[in-house]
Design a protein around this nucleic acid. Structure first.
Lengths: 214, 214
DNA sequence: GGATAAAAATGACTTTGGTCACAATGTTTC
DNA sequence: GAAACATTGTGACCAAAGTCATTTTTATCC
């Protein structure tokens, strides 16, 4: 049983690359292609496909809007979003609209293929990096997700202070709970703010929450 | 490269069945087995594994608690939860604790295997039925909370100030962007803090972020 | 029309936060 | 052993945040 795929991607070179990767798996067949969301929608009117692979950034109509419309017209059609690491902001909205998966363009080909199989057999697939960024947003509580960036630039002590700031603690409370003087806590915070290029504890707290440190 | 698996499941018959399925894929090797969470943890101390397949319902220590502990001890170890359709209540908590996937025991063997591959290559996999039940729950949480609780108690003006605080803006910046005096902004914030039972702008910012106001 | 409440403002005041300079100690690294 | 860095601390200082009392205007509700 072959899987009929609609590939939506504006850059012809990337599109061809993806097509080659997909058709390494003999089950997959790219039977339609489109360069933007509007084109994709009109293609779907005339052709039956099993799966849509959709780029996020495109002219005319982007992947977010296109996914929304496709899903409202064909709720059972599988849609997988192709994205770059920077585009994860959109992930939230698109999942809401019913996308079945989120894959990074930079993935290994095998990873891409196995994820597609997983979606076809009825799953929702999020790639690790995206899931890591998304889950805190959805779950709003500490998962594991210690950011690489943060840990590179901050020391153990600083990290534990950041967490407490992210819980809304005052310097006095932090000092008490870590058995430090208030002055020391202040010094640490000054250093942290400089390191992370933030202005005050409020921005630091926001940073901590958004990065799932709390 | 073989994948070393720890299989945690209390019923011997089911465990053997799963083992047979898993080892149909020559990459997979069940090298350790455990009948409950406590056993699983002690096995992990002595043996290195790449993946844990964990049943939810078990005597002594259930899969939820076990996953939590395993993930805090070995954050990079992949954990997939095996569940029945009725157990989806737990899914939420366990995802929070960092589980990498959720599979139904009733799945087709191939589905199971492809999902495991997907998790190993860095994904988060939710099976359709579970995702369908879970997503609304997750999406509702962060979005709806805002309208119900907060908007009941805060005025328009106050709400717009809360958002700016949630972006890390200072009183001066808020005053400028809303064309108010600094004193007015301070007054508003005092009222907001009282209304929401918070202490300072940092706690307010955290509140705003966690409730998806930013 | 009077009551109620949001919105805006001012001034005086206290507390907290953040910066800076400087210092002491211990650990790790080369 | 010197250099680099993490950690802790002090004291002085200024800026920002937050509280409180009080006032004015405007709009809405009964």
């Amino acid at each position: 049983m072959t899987v009929r795929i609609l590939l939506v991607e504006d850059q012809a070179i990337v599109r061809n690359g993806l097509k080659l990767i997909l058709e390494q798996d003999e089950e997959f067949q790219v039977i339609v292609e489109a360069g933007n969301g509007i084109e994709a929608l009109s293609r779907l009117e005339h052709t039956h496909v099993d799966l849509v692979l959709m780029d996020v950034r495109m002219p005319e109509m982007n992947g977010i809007e296109a996914t929304k419309r496709i899903k409202s017209l064909y709720p059972n059609l599988k849609v997988i979003i192709l994205t770059t690491f920077e585009d994860d902001e959109y992930a939230y909205q698109t999942l809401k609209d019913g996308a079945n998966g989120f894959l990074l363009k930079s993935s290994e080909p095998e990873k891409l293929l196995s994820s597609i199989h997983s979606v076809l057999s009825g799953g929702l697939v999020l790639q690790e990096d995206i899931a890591a960024k998304l889950m805190p947003k959805l779950l709003r509580q500490s998962v594991v997700a210690k950011d690489v960036e943060i840990q590179l630039s901050l020391t153990e002590r600083e990290l534990s202070i950041v967490k407490l700031v992210g819980e809304g603690k005052s310097n006095k409370e932090i000092a008490n709970s870590l058995f430090l003087s208030i002055g020391t806590v202040k010094n640490h915070i000054t250093n942290i703010l400089q390191e992370l290029d933030l202005r005050d504890r409020t921005q630091l707290a926001i940073y901590a929450v958004k990065n799932g440190l709390v």
